[in-house]
Computed example of a mutant assay.
Amino acid sequence: MTDLTGTAGHDDQVGTSSSGSGSGRPKRRTFTAEYKLAILEEYDEADAQSRGALLRRERLLTSHISEWRKARKGGALKALEPKTRKPARSQAEIENDKLRKEKVATELDRAGVRA
């Protein structure tokens, strides 16, 4: 079971908007992808009673779970996985650039041109 205590997965504010627009409409909660994945994982591991308790504790609806599962299945929540990318330049390229600069500086010194 995942402990979500202290997790800032959503803004936890369901009240009137403080924007001063005067509409008096409640502000929708927003949930981070990390939060959604953690809830889905905990929900999938829980039995029926624990699932209900989880939904009540987090003030969620089963429709949230259904939508988040569809998003996860469709790959929408895949963006959370750590991305591995190669460095912008390899060590050899960095070393080559350094040597080129040194070579240019040496040639300028030999020619009598000081930068």
Score class of each variant (00 low, 15 high):
residue 66 S to P: 00
residue 64 H to A: 03
residue 103 K to E: 06
residue 37 L to I: 10
residue 103 K to A: 11
residue 66 S to M: 07
residue 59 R to H: 14
residue 12 D to F: 05
residue 104 V to G: 00
residue 92 A to V: 09
residue 114 R to N: 05
residue 39 I to Y: 03
residue 104 V to E: 03
residue 114 R to G: 01
residue 79 A to Q: 12
residue 53 A to G: 07
residue 67 E to W: 13
residue 46 A to C: 09
residue 89 R to F: 05
residue 44 D to C: 07
residue 51 R to K: 09
residue 38 A to D: 10
residue 71 A to R: 13
residue 38 A to P: 01
residue 111 A to L: 14
residue 83 K to Y: 08
residue 14 V to S: 04
residue 22 G to W: 05
residue 65 I to A: 05
residue 105 A to P: 00
residue 92 A to E: 08
residue 74 G to H: 07
residue 60 L to R: 01
residue 102 E to F: 02
residue 2 T to Y: 09
residue 112 G to Y: 01
residue 78 K to W: 00
residue 36 K to H: 07
residue 40 L to E: 07
residue 46 A to Y: 05
residue 35 Y to A: 06
residue 82 P to I: 07
residue 91 Q to F: 08
residue 81 E to V: 11
residue 9 G to T: 01
residue 104 V to Y: 03
residue 96 N to G: 08
residue 5 T to S: 12
residue 63 S to E: 11
residue 8 A to N: 11
residue 5 T to N: 09
residue 32 T to G: 03
residue 18 S to G: 10
residue 71 A to N: 11
residue 91 Q to S: 09
residue 101 K to C: 03
residue 87 P to V: 11
residue 41 E to I: 05
residue 17 S to C: 13
residue 10 H to E: 10
residue 16 T to L: 11
residue 67 E to R: 13
residue 72 R to P: 00
residue 30 T to I: 07
residue 39 I to R: 00
residue 85 R to V: 09
residue 81 E to D: 15
residue 53 A to D: 06
residue 2 T to Q: 08
residue 9 G to L: 06
